[in-house]
Design a protein around this nucleic acid. Structure first.
Length: 817
RNA sequence: GCCGGGAUGGCGGAACUGGUAGACGCGCCGGACUCAAAAUCCGGUUCUGGCAACAGAGUGCGAGUUCGAUUCUCGCUCCCGGCACCA
């Protein structure tokens, strides 16, 4: 009687073996080809969800495949442990954030172990531990000394009822999610990291990141948004300070018919002092969310300030307006408006009856109609006095030179990228290591007083951070003058922790330094896998911190991730599966019912990794059914007599055919797993091989030897995806060693060769017949045989053959009549 | 609004470099086994017509390039991700 497949027992045994043999614990072995395989670490939200299972499985498959290639593989795991959900749990249920987080970590770690991921658990990191975050506090103080961090005011969402700052996510239709109050934009002082100092390097190095997906690089490039232009000033009547603007289109300067400033611009504030209607408008502008998407999609509104600016070249007076779509945080907070050649300026001008002037004409001499839309392309200058007739480049140069010579402007480069605001007015995060002293100002906490430890035993009395009500935390003395002083009670953006954890895994137990020589061995990460939703922010901040660590002499690497795989979302009912949306499927039920291998196989088989995966409960059973068939096929074979060694020179046609299938499968799966990362087609190929084995009915010694080769290949090829069952089946096939320590099989070219090939014959591009020819047949022979096919003859009939396309390597003939 | 991605049978998907559309799996239909059911095994399954051979149509919509387009170009529609305080 064949042993039935019992996934719980099989998986327990495999796990016990790996634990006992410390199969995934690795130390540095200089000279060995290392492979650092990493997954974006999870937020400990409570339980694993399907998105986690998907990304961890993808990474584990790659790690196990690389191990079978003979590489020294490091795969660590940890916890992005700070964040808002822990505070929400504290507010709702009274459980302290630290306790909630540590409980979640314990539970999720157990789930991960149950799924059989090959992690070196000795290196586990939780970012909420002082021994982790002390080093980012330390680097922040070093950055302070170098002027790479600074404090300035910036806009936040303010809930006037709860008296607290809200995340964009917590603003629903312009109202606070708990209070329901209309949210206001408010400016508060915050700490910034000078990422713009690295803008050019972050941009240029994208070109050398060959292992990154093209779309991610394009998104980062657009996010950084380097643009060359001119910064120039317009004098303003009755104002001492001129109004500065930036433009990438100085060639359109003579077409300026008005100016627009942001609602927060000082010029607007001064004008509002004289104009109560305007003051009310500025108030109205404040009552919107700080998110850029909401600013960009809201109705474009504006009001005249009642003052004029003086055009620097023509001396003409142009009105100054305030407009809700001008961003104070981008550029100078003011723009020159050229409605003839900018679509947004055009629409604003039409709405408010402002003049539209053409100063650019198409280079091909065609007419344009400025009553319908702006003409935004480059062209030749018109109505621009001495600049008439110049091209874009000539005009850019001439006007920039005029402005520079007359002290009215200069050429410069602007970035869309803004410095990184890292202050959060929340409790559950890394304390920002700053002390405020009345005499000395903002003073960084000295190294010997680090870490600034976040108190973990706290009570939430409301939505505000408990730190703000804890004098025992914030009351301190100035590190410089010893006078009474106050600690910063804001914490870091949690993106700070995730910007360097990958380096810390290499040396997590070093309490004397942030990084050490082990970082040099393992970094950079060879394969980084994570959600596409991190394409910009996390991946850009991590690249920035790697460069910081390099410039502070902590690392010799400038880029953290050599190859990047961005896996698609796991969707349910068309929406991203997330705890926030409450549409998660708990993997735990499936693991308990079918085992980890079924869940892993299902995730890998259902969609290629980069595509979104729409969840469906169906199909899991299919994966389980396949594993049962796989198990039974190997067990039944193992019950029979052991075949003799394979003699490849003494096989009949059917045996050769199965061998051909075996080696073609090895070749395909090697390419799918090793190069293409299309695990779904790799699984399909092994399924085909097993279907061929089941159809193969040959109990002769040679037949059984060919079957053994096919089954051994199937076990090895599937072992990265379903490692537990393969661990057991490898033993069943008579091997004493463990499958995890085996090498990846090699395809035998000779076994793949075939004597005849099938060629499809088209007439006028439509398939009309199939012919069998010798593998080495020449074009003439193929062509003659194609024309001889009965159905092909029917379609060619008596019509003249105009062209014959014969492509033996593509196995195709096309006859054009 | 801006940036990036996607759309193929009843469903998930395959077709890698412009060359056989629908591999593999799910579901469904039929059969075997069974007193019966479940499980398992075998066969069929894009649509339309035809007993069949075969023919016609077909990859979100509309054009174009080509002997040949799911694949390339242009113009749309809808969906997904990101937009700097969700992680």
């Amino acid at each position: 009687m064949t042993k039935t497949y019992d996934p719980q027992a099989v998986e327990q045994a495999a796990r016990d073996y790996w634990d006992e043999h410390r199969s995934f614990e690795v130390d540095e072995e200089p000279g060995r080809d290392k492979f650092y395989c990493l997954t974006m670490f999870p937020y400990p939200s409570g339980r694993l969800h399907m998105g986690h299972v998907r990304v961890f499985t993808i990474s584990d498959v790659i790690a196990r495949y690389q191990r079978m290639q003979g590489r020294h593989v490091l795969q660590p795991m940890g916890w992005d442990a700070f964040g808002m959900p822990a505070e929400n749990a504290a507010i709702q249920r009274g459980v302290p954030p630290a306790e909630w987080t540590y409980q979640n970590i314990d539970y999720m770690r157990g789930q991960m172990k149950r799924l059989g991921f090959g992690y070196d658990w000795r290196r586990e990191i939780a970012t909420c531990r002082p021994e982790y975050y002390r080093w980012e506090q330390w680097l922040f103080t070093k950055m302070f000394e170098k002027g790479l961090v600074y404090r300035k005011s910036a806009v936040v969402n303010w809930d006037p009822v709860d008296q607290t700052v809200l995340a964009n996510e917590q603003v629903i239709n312009g109202r606070g999610w708990r209070s329901g109050a209309l949210v206001e934009r408010r400016e508060i002082p915050q700490w910034f990291m000078r990422i713009t100092a690295y803008a050019d390097e972050l941009l240029e190095e994208l070109d050398r990141l060959d292992g990154w997906p093209g779309p991610v690089k394009i998104m980062q490039r657009n996010w950084i948004g380097r643009s060359e232009g001119v910064e120039l000033t317009f004098d303003v009547e009755g104002e001492a300070e001129p109004l500065a603007v930036f433009t990438t289109r100085p060639d359109t300067l003579m077409g300026v018919t008005y100016m627009a400033v942001a609602a927060e611009h000082p010029l607007a504030a001064r004008a509002a002092e004289r104009d109560p209607g305007l003051a009310a408008f500025l108030e109205e502008c404040k009552r919107t969310q700080a998110a850029e998407a909401s600013l960009e999609t809201m109705e474009k509104k504006g009001r005249p300030l009642g003052i004029s600016a003086i055009h620097p070249i023509s001396g003409e007076k142009v009105p100054v307006w305030v407009a809700n779509f001008v961003l104070m945080s981008y550029g100078t907070g003011a723009v020159m408006a050229v409605p003839g050649h900018d679509q947004r300026d055009f629409e604003f001008a039409r709405k408010h009856g402002l003049p539209i002037r053409q100063v650019i004409a198409p280079a091909d001499g065609s007419e344009i109609d400025l009553s319908q839309a702006a003409f935004v392309e480059h062209g030749l200058l018109v109505n621009s006095g001495r600049f008439d007739g110049l091209t874009f480049e000539e005009a850019f140069d001439a006007i920039a030179r005029w402005l520079e010579e007359n002290g009215r402007g200069r050429r410069c480069v602007h970035y869309r990228l803004r410095d990184w605001g890292v202050s959060r007015q929340r409790y559950w995060g890394t304390p920002i290591p700053i002390v405020y002293c009345d005499a000395c100002g903002a003073v960084p906490v000295p190294e010997d007083q680090l870490p600034v430890v976040l108190p973990e035993d706290v009570k939430f009395t409301g939505v505000r951070s408990p730190l703000k009500e804890m004098p025992e935390f914030y009351e301190t003395t100035c590190p410089k003058c010893a006078a009474p002083a106050k600690r910063e009670t804001d914490t870091f953006d949690t993106f700070v922790e995730s910007s360097w954890y990958f380096a810390r895994y290499c040396c997590h137990d070093n309490h004397e330094a942030m990084l050490d020589s082990r970082e040099a061995y393992w970094m950079p990460v060879d394969q980084y896998t994570g959600g596409i939703e991190h394409a910009i922010l996390h991946l850009l901040y991590a690249r920035f911190w790697q460069k910081l660590m390099r410039d502070f002499g902590l690392s010799s690497h400038g880029e953290p991730f050599t190859n990047l795989l961005t896996q698609g979302m796991v969707l349910k009912d068309g929406a991203k599966m997330s705890k926030a949306k409450g549409n998660t499927v708990d993997p735990q039920d499936l693991i308990e019912r079918y085992g980890a291998d079924t869940v892993r196989l299902f995730m890998m088989f259902t969609a290629p990794p980069e595509q979104a995966l729409e969840w469906s409960d169906e199909g899991v059973q299919g994966a389980h059914r396949f594993l049962k068939r796989f198990w039974n096929a190997v067990q039944r074979f193992a019950e029979g007599e052991a075949p003799p060694p394979l003699d490849v020179n003494a096989l009949d046609e059917a045996q050769k055919e199965l061998r051909r299938k075996t080696h073609r499968t090895i070749a395909k799966v090697s390419d799918d797993v090793g190069r293409r990362y299309t695990f779904n087609t790799a699984v399909a190929a092994v399924m085909e091989l097993l279907n061929a084995v089941q159809r193969f009915d040959d109990e002769s010694p040679a037949g059984r030897a060919v079957v053994r080769e096919a089954l051994e290949a199937a076990v090895l090829l599937l072992s990265p995806i379903v490692p537990h069952i393969c661990h057991e089946l490898w033993h069943a096939l008579g091997h004493a060693g463990a499958c995890v320590d085996e090498r990846w099989p090699a395809a035998d070219e000779a076994a793949m060769a075939e004597a005849t090939i099938e060629i499809v014959v088209q007439v006028n591009g439509k398939l009309r017949g199939r012919i069998q020819v010798a593998a080495d047949a020449d074009e003439e022979e193929i062509s003659a045989k194609a024309l001889a096919d009965a159905n092909v003859r029917r379609f060619v009939a008596d019509r003249a053959v105009r062209k014959k396309i014969v492509l033996p390597e593509r196995r195709l003939v096309n006859i054009v009549v």
